[in-house]
Design a protein around this nucleic acid. Sequence first.
RNA 1: GGCGGCGUAGCCAAGUGGCUAAGGCAGAGGUCUGCAAAACCUUUAUUCCCGGGUUCGAGUCCCGGCGCCGCCUCCA
Length: 499
Amino acid sequence: MGLRIYNTLTRQKEPFEPLTPGQVGMYACGITAYDLSHIGHARSALVFDVIRRYFEFNGYRVVFVRNFTDVDDKIIKRAEQEGGSVGEVSERYIAEFQKDMESLGVLPADVEPKATEYIPQMIALIERLLGRGFAYVVNGDVYFEVGRFPHYGRLSGKNLDELLAGARVEVDERKRDPHDFALWKSTKPGEPSWESPWGPGRPGWHIECSAMSMEHLGESFDIHGGGEDLIFPHHDCEIAQSEAATDKPFVRYWIHNGFVQIHQEKMSKSLGNFFTVRDIFEKSPYGVQVTAEALRYFLLTTHYRSPLDFSDDALWESKRALDRFYGLFQRLDESSGAKGPGDRLLPPLFERLGEAFRQAMDDDFNTPAAFAQLQLLRGELNRLLETGLSKQAREQAREAFRSLGQVLGLCQLSFREWEFGIMHQVHATDAVAAAVEDKVDVRVSKESLTDVEIEQKLAKRNEARRRKDFATADTIRAELASLGITIEDRPDGTSRWKR
RNA sequence: GGCGGCGUAGCCAAGUGGCUAAGGCAGAGGUCUGCAAAACCUUUAUUCCCGGGUUCGAGUCCCGGCGCCGCCUCCA
């Protein structure tokens, strides 16, 4: 059936047909680098990361561009506050963003252009617009004249009359229409500026994405996306500028992700109700990889276009769901020497659930439905494990999760890297609060025993169990439990353990 | 005021005209176990915010309510 994508432009799902067979050009609006990224930024980055991974999973050659806005009012303001230069501020927060994305397992884009490195392209584009009569110059500023572009507002479904009716914009007397937007802003004292045919200044926000995307992907390309708040005015302005300049359709598929909310309210800097990605990692009682996977899982349990309510409880619920996967991976790793009566059932199982997984992802990247297939596969394998699977079959099973999980960036760790402990008895939020309050690093206490020491204690315990000395056995188990180590006894008298 | 979206079990969340409404988390009972843990089995929505309508048939389409959210200004 093939991939179908919900296109904001047409407000319906459409079959995906790339401009060039086998290739995909996609551009995602990245961050304005003036502060640490919050979970909302992470969601957006993750959504496009997964979309990109899924295209690659399907064998497309993808060119993925994600930009950085490194000059704008907020960065300038921040630089004034911090006493640094605009370049220092933006460089710092770009580095922080990249650090956060690496923690989260969001792959770097193929190109990560910065606005200030594309000034010549922007100037060229503005000149084109001036030459074609879509823009005008006023005292060193250049504005795009929205009235000249017949479809302005098509993406957001707005028209100029409606916009005016609800206008909350300050009317700038120099503009011919209140909705005309700046392509080039003349410099003010103390601000960074570049030379241009209209005097020193800096680019408007919208023009940078048009210039950078066309530079790397061409005047028409497949996919452009970002948070849903960018639909208007940002993306409508991009369409207007780009198409006015080229007379070509700018983008074929517009993809927008929904917001992260806190208590049913938009998470945003201006509302002050945000959690940074850094907060999550710092407060987490788990290591980076485990926290990242829990956060990824959480952010993908809701379809990308729906709002997603963030809470600690919901995040750690995702962690618990992942525990079940890694518990299975641990069992799959054990060499029991079983013959494997269930082996022949595996190929059709992988076939069926793998196909269902692809169908889910094909349906506008329906990650929640795709998760359901992985969970079904988990259940089936747990059952088959009881009937018996050969070592080879178990390796294939693990590989199936690795392969499908690759698309979502999940299930890639070894079970020894996963951390099961700590949250089993204690409520997640309490544990986090306790850890923060007591300044106790929970991870330290969990790692206070080496694998060898654990094995030694287990050997002592199982020796006691053989003597039916259950008091001693239970004492050892309690001791390990207090260190965040869980014991699971096997039927044959041996035991496995989890951190 | 204009535009758009959402309302499915205790919680999270798929499903957009047709077999018995996915899946997860949490809960309950059971199997296994010395006891646990894990896993497995059973169990949790005669019903999809409310009221009409279209249809042989609707959670799914239409109309009208109610509630919530977003955009219209920088914003992922």
